[in-house]
């Protein structure tokens, strides 16, 4: 999908950098940050179609960032990235308004598909 605007947020720098490189090889340019505060700042600075957001981070946690993004940029679609097995087992109550979730370790092709779907949702929600 052309021009997809993606932000990757995870406190494991090595992880976000490598995912970003793999996405780039698939034609998706992604920006990366390693904490919730920076993520929020970046989202306020410019619009993103999709934010891939780690749930467990030091300081401002993923769920708090999600709530703030929902308030400030309601059309931005958030995909949560989590190691929480309850979500994997179908407890979607934990999503709290996110577009979807993905479980660590990430399947890159699944992630790309979810990002495309999220971007589509974003475009639809932008329509008057």
């Amino acid at each position: 999908m052309d021009g997809m605007r993606v932000l990757l947020v995870d406190d494991e720098e090595e992880l976000v950098e490598t995912i970003a490189e793999r996405l780039e090889l698939r034609g998706i340019v992604a920006e990366t940050v390693t904490n919730g505060e920076e993520a929020l700042q970046r989202v306020l600075e410019k619009p993103f179609d999709v934010v891939l957001l780690d749930v467990k981070m030091p300081g401002l946690g993923g769920m708090e960032v999600l709530k703030l993004i929902r308030m400030q940029r309601p059309n931005t679609q958030v995909i949560l990235i989590t190691g929480h097995a309850s979500v994997e087992n179908g407890d979607r109550r934990l999503l709290e308004g996110a577009f979807d979730f993905i479980v660590k370790p990430v399947d890159i092709e699944v992630l790309v598909d979810k990002m495309k779907e999220a971007t589509q949702r974003r475009k639809e929600s932008d329509k008057p």
């Binding site: 494991e12 992880l15 490598t18 793999r22 190691g83 370790p105 990430v106 890159i108």
Partner: peptide, 16 residues
Amino acid sequence: HELKNVAAIINESAGL
């Protein structure tokens, strides 16, 4: 959770 993070990094590095 810690182990999942490590597995995720190994997975991405091998994937790359």
